[in-house]
């Protein structure tokens, strides 16, 4: 649900589950079923998310965590190579550190 969480810090497993839920909402269940989403999954290569889908994903993070995480700002500080190599584990670590 897109609500700002008010309770305590999530552990990495909980963040992983939440990210999986957001990815499913963005790209659709039928595609997620065919994929094995792991912390190694890259956004562009493995999950095949395009930029408008990453916008949706960013909006979900913003809606859930509010101002405590500047996910878009973090993404915009990356160059193209970093973005291409971005995987789920890196996002989980970033969110975990920000909380």
């Amino acid at each position: 649900m897109d609500t700002v969480a008010s309770t305590g810090k999530l552990n990495k497993e909980e963040i992983f589950d939440l990210m999986k839920q957001f990815i499913t909402e963005v790209i659709g269940e039928e595609f997620v079923e065919e994929m094995d989403i792991t912390t190694e999954s890259s956004f562009t290569k493995d999950l095949e998310m395009d930029s408008i889908e990453i916008v949706s994903f960013s909006e979900k993070i913003k809606a859930h965590f509010g101002d405590q995480i500047d996910f878009t700002g973090w993404l915009s500080s990356m160059d193209l190579d970093q973005l291409i190599n971005l995987n789920l584990g890196m996002i989980i670590n970033y969110i975990y550190e920000c909380q």
Partner: peptide, 12 residues
């Protein structure tokens, strides 16, 4: 295209 052409770098 779509608004993502601005969203990540130019708009911020």
């Amino acid at each position: 295209s779509n608004l993502s052409v601005y969203y990540f770098n130019i708009a911020p």
